[in-house]
């Protein structure tokens, strides 16, 4: 589903974030990417939706060589990915409901068809009762659940989350990871980056540990 072949990434004027990384995530798999700050977790995840491009090597997502995609093709790649960020990237000038409706409007769904899907996504993360609220009125954990609802409303086959539990208490963090697990159970490929190794060890799932841009451990490697 997702494969990195000998991928390196050097930022212009910066350091080397990844060194010849090779890694494959199978369809329907849930993998945690762990490592200390600066290990290369975020860079690895940003290569999948082509927010960043690899300096060398190839990144293949659902059969597409992401590095070779032209700028105009990127929106269509991203519509098939659910992205969740540490800072949520929500729109605070519109309601919870409107935030979840945005991906559906972008992909051209009719409001009649989109509305029940948006409500179903909010229901799945336990926020249906707050649909009229502004995201600013939500707690940190609720905002992260809203970001997940927005990521899954388009029913992507791949869900990517970068530090979704950072700044959350243990209970909220556990709830967020449970939601990812539940999506994985219905066949969604899930890749979650987190520095909280203790939290992920509670789930018997594949753990990929990065250190200084290199693969240090892969519990699911063949």
């Amino acid at each position: 589903m997702i494969s990195f072949s000998n991928v390196s990434k050097r930022y212009p004027g910066g350091g080397q974030a990844l060194h010849g990384l090779t890694l494959a995530i199978q369809a329907g798999e849930l993998a945690f990417v762990t490592g200390h700050s600066g290990a290369g977790k975020s860079t690895l995840l940003k290569l999948i939706p082509a927010i960043e491009r690899a300096t060398s090597g190839s990144v293949i997502v659902a059969g597409q060589n992401v590095g070779a995609l032209k700028r105009a093709a990127l929106p269509f790649l991203r519509r098939n990915l659910g992205l969740v960020f540490q800072d949520q990237k929500l729109l605070y000038d519109r309601s919870v409901y409107d935030n979840v409706m945005l991906p559906l409007a972008i992909s051209g769904h009719a409001p009649r068809e989109a509305a029940p899907r948006a409500r179903a996504a909010l229901d799945k993360v336990g926020l249906l009762a707050r649909e009229r609220a502004n995201p600013i009125q939500l707690s940190g954990g609720e905002q992260q659940r809203l970001a997940i609802a927005r990521a899954v409303v388009s029913r992507p086959s791949i869900l990517i989350a970068d530090e979704p539990t950072a700044n959350l208490d243990a209970e909220s963090a556990g709830l967020i990871l449970d939601i990812f697990v539940s999506f994985n159970q219905v066949g969604v490929t899930v890749l979650v980056a987190t520095h909280d190794e203790a939290l992920v060890r509670r789930y018997a799932r594949r753990v990929v540990r990065l250190a200084a841009g290199r693969l240090a451990e892969d519990s699911g490697a063949a």
Partner: peptide, 16 residues
């Protein structure tokens, strides 16, 4: 700017 960046992140085309 934020709205544009987020929209592009979740698949908005330049035309959108």
């Amino acid at each position: 700017r934020d709205e544009i960046e987020i929209s592009k992140l979740i698949g908005a085309t330049d035309a959108f």
